[in-house]
Every structure is written in C-alpha cells, then in structure tokens.
Design a protein around this nucleic acid. Sequence first.
DNA 1: AATATAAACTAATGTAATTAGTTTTGCAAT
DNA 2: ATTGCAAAACTAATTACATTAGTTTATATT
Lengths: 193, 193
Amino acid sequence: MSPRAGLDTHTLVIAAADIADEQGIEAVTLAALAAKLGVRSPSLYNHINGLQGLRTLLAIYGLEQLYTMMSAAVEGVSGDIAVHAMSQAYVDFARSRPGLYETTLRAPELENVPLELAGNLILSLMIHALKAYDLGEEGELHAIRGLRSILHGFTSLEHKGGFGMPLDANISLSRLISTFIAGIGNMKDVGKG
Amino acid sequence: MSPRAGLDTHTLVIAAADIADEQGIEAVTLAALAAKLGVRSPSLYNHINGLQGLRTLLAIYGLEQLYTMMSAAVEGVSGDIAVHAMSQAYVDFARSRPGLYETTLRAPELENVPLELAGNLILSLMIHALKAYDLGEEGELHAIRGLRSILHGFTSLEHKGGFGMPLDANISLSRLISTFIAGIGNMKDVGKG
DNA sequence: AATATAAACTAATGTAATTAGTTTTGCAAT
DNA sequence: ATTGCAAAACTAATTACATTAGTTTATATT
C-alpha cells in the first residue's frame, strides 16, 4: 500500500476528525493520522500545512457541519421554536461529534478567511432567529453574545462531565433557553444600560 | 544557583500559573518551568507528579483563587445583586488570570478529591445565591447548570476573541445576567417540563 | 562529626513535529 | 509508445519535550 496512497486534503481532515471524536482532540497528532492512513508522517505535508494547518482545516470543517445541522433545524420554523430548535441542534452536534466540535474552538489562526466565513454563517443564522424579538441594533448584538455564551458554555460543561448530577441535560438546556427567551427584553437598547 | 534551589510544590504552581497567564496554557511545559526556575526538568519530579500532576495542581489553585474572588464579591449582598456581583467577579478573574482560569477547565483527572472539593466550594456559592429565587430542588440544579454555562461560555468566548464587535463586553455580561434573572421562573419544577 | 534523606544532577529513551533532500509514480504531451 | 515533469511518497536527520534510572550533594538530625 506504500506507493501512491492517493490521499488528498479532505481525506486527511475526515480521518483526523474521526480520531478526534474517538480518542479525543489530544490524540490528533500527525503521527497518529499518518498511521491511520498507512503513510509516513512527512507525507502528510503534501496535503496540509503541518499540524497547525490541519487544525485550522478541522475547525472549518466542524463549523460547516455545525452550520448544516443548525440550518436544517430552523428550516420552516421561527420565533421561540426556532431558537429552541437551533439550540438543540447545536448541542446535539457537539454530542455526536465531540472531538470535531472541540476543534472549532481551538482554532490557532484567528485571521483565516475561510474560518471566519464559516463562523459568520452560523452567526447570521442566530441573527436571523433573533430578529423576531425586535431588540434593536446593539440589543441584538448583546443577545447574540448571550446565546453563543449559553450554547458554548452548556456544551463545554456537558462535554467535560461538569454536570455531575443525574438530571436530564436536555431539560436543563430547554429550561435555559426558555429562561433566556423569557428575559430577552433585558437585551433591548432602551430600558436597560 | 545550581545546588539546592530550594523549590517546593507551591513555588512550582505559582511559577507555572505565571507562564500560563503570560504565554498561554500551551507554553506550560516542564522544560519552560524548569528554565524559569533555574533548574533541570527532571528535578521538578521531586515536587510534582509529572506534567499531569502539575496540571491538576494548577486547576486546584485556579479554582481556589476563583472561589476567593467570588466569595468576596457576594460578601454582604444577596438576591439579584449577588448574582450580578458573583458573575462579574467570575469574569474579572478569568480576565486577569486567563491562563490560570483556563487550567481549571482542562483538568486531566476528574476523580481527584482536592479538585472536586475546590469545585464544590464554588458550586455551593452559586447554590446559596440562587436560594433567593425559590426554584425547588430540581429547579435549582437546572438553574446552576444554566448559570455555570453562561459564565463559562461568556468567559471562554471572550478569551478566544470570539466577541469581534466593538461593543462593551461588560454590558453584554450585565444584560445576560439580567436576562437570566428575569426569566429564572422558567427554571422552576412546576409549570414547565 | 556521622549519616540519612531529600533535592538536585547527568544520561538515556521514546514520541512527536518538522525540514531537507531523494525516489517514484502517474499523467500529459509529444 | 515514449519521454518528461510535477506531485506524492519516501528516508534521514534535527529539535523539543516528558519521563525514567541512577548518581551526587546539601542539609538537617542525631
């Protein structure tokens, strides 16, 4: 299987995502990836720009997958239902692809155009869903920050086993989103500073 | 300075926390720590249980410091004010000691008694602050999860530069907490499932 | 002063990322 | 079909780090 393994960038990213999901993000090394693909690690450099490059590609891939899930979830719904659906999709994605999700947060290069693009897609999805609440320009931005904080924080804590109690996490999430929506008037530009 | 540098475990942890804050958590290596302390890296093993042991100690130290700040913040206040104050203290701590804060989340050993203890102190502080809202037993647990998600998520996103917009983050936080409090009735056991 | 212990050291091993330089393959153009 | 080239794989070597084993040395206690 040695000569011409027929690799390409996408194959590497898929395989690396698998490793991340199965063995954790720490296990995503070029050595492990090369072994999984039946190749020596320097060969990977023909397709990716080192470990850092791979991590950036993983982040982009993860964001794209996340966007796909969230986008499907809000298809044809709006208002509170859309916010709940989007949130549930976010958390479900992180649960089903824990390693891949984590790569979206450890992106080494902040100024990577495709990475920013993928992030902006998700952002615009959230913005669209929050339009229903008439928060004003700044209010909307604060609300986005809030929702992102909630989703990322919840996901992150759940992943690291931070929710020790035997209490249904989906209920926790659902109530948290309901809480957020119920109080969302506090995000408005007027009436609060 | 070679013979008998006079190190001890606490000195190592302090120095490692400095590295984490100044150069990021990735820079916390035994090699770097040893260099900073004027010692060869194997010498560190007299005081810590390898890199993993150091990380656990860092996490404990970070949680203790965080607890100290939060605890001071709620001194003598209660209700909404306490929740706001505690939240602000949490975020301020993460801002002032970004590396140390991050170590509290990457704890390798989940079943470490002192680590759990330090975490439980913070938890009990939150529980106490939320007593004011009469949420019931389960409601309280869901609310704790919610507040932790918010604080960790907000902190984490801010740290990674996720809040691109030129919009005051303290206002975002304040509104998020107000939103949470305003809707907290949704955490109650009755009236929602 | 003698000694035991703990703290430092040197030396060595294993893993990983990365670079340089080489071989080989497959396709494209003749 | 043959030639030639670019890409994809390789080997070899370097660097950095964690870790272990075994040695030396300082210091506190007797």
